[in-house]
Design a protein around this nucleic acid. Structure first.
Length: 504
RNA sequence: GAGCCGUUAGCUCAGUCGGCAGAGCACCGGACUUUUAAUCCGGGUGUCGUGGGUUCGACCCCCACACGGCUCACCA
């Protein structure tokens, strides 16, 4: 109480609960000579899914005493009835009711469970399945061993755990309380496995390239900075795997891919986490059109792997059935804004139109940059169904091969779903002289204050000078694809431990 | 980085005009041999996010800060 003025530190209620459970543990050790934290192993022979699936046929008020089930899990709820008890046991995939009976399991074991087992505890069980009068498949327990003890209480059994702050910070509590969350992450794994399977089946070699390097290239983004003590070196966390993977194509690997984390020092919102998982793949002798086919193949395979090709995403139906729509940026801008960039010849003209359209300009924008901004302003968020956007200006595509028909544009596409970019691909620029000019152009942008302009990578040009075959390359954001295929509103719902500020 | 909203028991949430801080579940003690949000009897476990201010008196009003959420900005 606040009137308590002694110098003893006030014991918080949470500490009370811990102390209470600690006292109980001490009494367990003293009175029973049993320490649940010393148990090494339990020969779990059946999971609860096995029991659910194999004894579904049992009729009410009957059991299969010949079936010896040895299982284990976490105690979720306990209903005590004196000389009988019902417990809801949960394991990774299922929940199953347990029935403890004084007569059946013997006084000693029964009283031990009744006295010492709490919700949250981990127990090992031997018994046989039966179905209760009320129709619930249940395990009739012959033997129960306390395998580990919970010192903290479980979240409330009816409302579960909703507080997103606790859910993200203490994901282990979230996945105890909300089994559906476990399922989202199983699907995430399934999707990544599907990526690997499709890419492997196409003869691509999975490789690993550096996360730490002295130069973070391959994308427009601000990197995280770090420091190597022994080398006395400023280093960066990678923002893309692109330049290393293309070096490998130069080095005569025909098809390579990497799935891993990229790190970008930017804001956090529903679609962005500072570290995110990307897949990049490069195929020698292929072009960006092959990459479009590959995107379709991967997405369809992922959709099939975790459900249907038509998925409900936050009330919108997304249809992953190929072929996806293909349209150029110029066409889409014309479609959604009535501005026709095929008819615009000069930068001045483009700026005039942009101002009429309500865009804020600095005054030096090229017509290509304005096209891009008009696309972002008027088109992007309207591309709900999977759509390939082609015809990206060369100016904003410093690593893409030019379109031979129109060198101001590149053989590049991005794929959008629900207004959100999930893939970026192009025929890779392999002309080292052109690449040098593109990097120099980026350097100018950087000098003009664009902190996200590409870094100049001399060694990458050196690699190109050895000869890069015509190559198709593709990058895909895996977190976002997982979001769409698991109906998750926030990227944090598909990342086990999303970035959070320290609480205290 | 900006704006808006939120923060009350382990969990889910009420709360008042500024006048002793509430419920359900969980938890603790007891009863109960087919319950399932078990039931019955008894127990409230709290620095009302943190720090200031106003006031006789603050969970409530004011200011600052922290963390979270949403909307922007930046981006994939």
């Amino acid at each position: 109480m606040s009137s308590n003025n002694d110098n003893q530190p006030h014991s918080l209620p949470e500490e009370e609960i811990l102390k209470q459970r600690m006292d109980k543990l001490s009494r367990l050790r003293e009175e029973e000579g049993y320490d649940p934290f010393i148990v090494q192993k339990w020969d779990k022979q059946h999971d609860l899914r096995y029991v659910m699936e194999n004894f579904a046929h049992l009729e009410e008020d009957s059991g299969d005493e010949s079936a010896e089930i040895v299982t284990a899990g976490r105690v979720m709820t306990i209903r005590k009835h004196g000389k009988a008890m019902f417990v809801t046991l949960a394991d990774e995939y299922e929940q199953l009711q347990l029935y403890f009976q004084f007569n059946a399991m013997g006084e000693e074991n029964y009283n031990f469970v009744k006295k010492w087992v709490d919700t949250g505890d981990i127990i090992g069980i031997k018994g046989h399945p039966f179905r209760t009068r009320r129709g619930e498949l249940t395990l009739f327990v012959k033997e129960c061993k306390l395998l580990s003890k919970a010192m903290r209480p479980l979240p409330e059994k009816w409302h579960g755990l909703k507080d997103v702050e606790i859910r993200y910070r203490q994901r282990y509590v979230d996945t105890i309380a909300n089994p559906d969350v476990r399922d989202v992450f199983r699907k995430r794994t399934k999707i990544i496995q599907t990526f690997r399977k499709v890419l492997d089946d196409h003869g691509s070699l999975e490789v690993e390239t550096p996360i730490l390097s002295v130069l973070a290239g391959g994308a427009n983004a601000r990197p995280f900075e770090t420091y190597h003590n022994a080398l006395g070196l400023e280093m960066y966390m990678r923002i893309a795997t692109e330049l290393y993977l293309k070096r490998l194509i130069v080095g005569m690997f025909g098809r390579v891919y990497e799935i891993g984390k990229n790190f970008r020092n930017e804001g956090i919102d529903l679609m962005h986490n500072p570290e995110f998982t990307a897949m990049e793949v490069y195929w020698a002798y292929a072009n960006y059109e092959d990459m479009m086919d590959l995107v379709e193949e991967i997405l369809v395979a992922c959709a099939d792997a975790v459900g249907e090709r038509k998925v409900n995403y936050q009330g919108i139906e997304l249809d992953f059935n190929p072929p996806f729509r293909r349209a150029t940026m110029v066409d889409l801008v014309r479609e959604y804004s009535d501005f026709d960039f095929d008819q615009i010849e000069t930068d001045e003209e483009a700026r005039k139109i942009a101002r009429e359209a309500g865009l804020e300009l600095k005054g030096h924008e090229s017509r290509f940059l304005i096209l891009t901004e008009m696309f972002e302003e008027f088109v992007e968020d309207k591309l709900i169904q999977p759509t390939f956007v082609l015809g990206y200006p060369t100016e904003i595509s410093p690593l893409s091969k030019r379109d031979p028909e129109n060198p101001d544009f590149t053989n590049r596409f991005e794929c959008f779903i629900n207004g959100c970019e999930i893939a970026n691909a192009f025929s890779e620029l392999n002309d080292p002289m052109d690449q040098r000019e593109r990097f120099e152009d980026q350097l100018k942008k950087r000098e003009l204050g664009d902190e996200e302009a590409h870094a100049f990578d001399e060694d990458f040009i050196n690699a190109l000078e050895y000869g890069l075959p015509p190559t198709g390359g593709l990058g895909m954001g895996i977190d976002r694809i997982v979001m769409f295929l698991t109906n998750s509103r926030s990227i944090r719902d598909v990342i086990l431990f999303p970035a959070m500020k320290p609480k205290a």
